[in-house]
Amino acid sequence: MPSLIEQTGYDLGSTLTFALALNLGAVAGSVVTAWAGDRFGAAPSSTVAALIAGIALAVI
């Protein structure tokens, strides 16, 4: 993804910042989803996580 962003005209620093934010968000989302799975059950937390991921991909 960083190379695609760079091809659209953004500088390398912006693309690397985006990649870092994307990966940190994935780690945080994994931790929150694991906690929610323990607290509310696997099926509801997986469903909410999938919906949030779908919305995030649509926004990107």
Rank of each mutant, 00 (worst) to 15 (best):
A43N: 08
L24I: 13
T15F: 00
A50L: 15
G29D: 05
A36N: 09
V48G: 02
G13Q: 12
G25H: 07
I55R: 01
V48S: 03
I52D: 01
L57M: 14
W35G: 00
F40R: 03
G54Y: 01
G9L: 04
A49S: 01
V27H: 09
V59I: 07
A36Q: 08
S14H: 14
A56Y: 03
D38Q: 09
V27L: 14
A21G: 07
S46F: 08
N23C: 11
L51R: 03
G13M: 07
Q7L: 07
T47G: 08
S45Y: 03
V31C: 06
S45W: 01
Y10W: 09
N23Q: 11
A19F: 08
A53G: 13
A43E: 03
S46L: 09
A26D: 10
M1T: 06
G37C: 11
V59W: 14
V31Q: 09
A21W: 09
W35N: 07
V59E: 10
T17P: 07
A50V: 09
T33I: 05
G25N: 06
T8P: 07
M1I: 00
I55N: 07
S14R: 15
D11G: 14
A36T: 09
A19P: 03
A53F: 06
G9K: 02
E6P: 01
G54S: 11
A50G: 10
N23R: 08
A21Q: 10
A50T: 11
M1R: 00
V48A: 03
A49E: 00
R39H: 10
F18A: 05
L24C: 08
A26N: 15
A53M: 09
F40C: 02
N23V: 06
D11R: 09
I55W: 14
E6I: 03
V31F: 13
T33Y: 01
V32R: 02
Y10L: 14
L4N: 12
S14P: 10
S30G: 07
G25V: 00
L57N: 05
A21N: 10
I60K: 04
I60G: 13
E6A: 12
L4H: 13
L12T: 05
A42F: 05
A26W: 15
V48Q: 07
T47L: 08
T47Y: 04
F40W: 06
A43Q: 10
A53D: 04
I5F: 05
L24D: 05
P44W: 06
S3M: 10
S14T: 14
A21M: 13
W35R: 13
S30L: 09
G13H: 12
T17Q: 12
G54D: 03
W35T: 12
Q7P: 00
D11E: 11
V59F: 12
L16V: 06
S14Y: 09
T17W: 15
V31I: 13
A42W: 04
F40N: 02
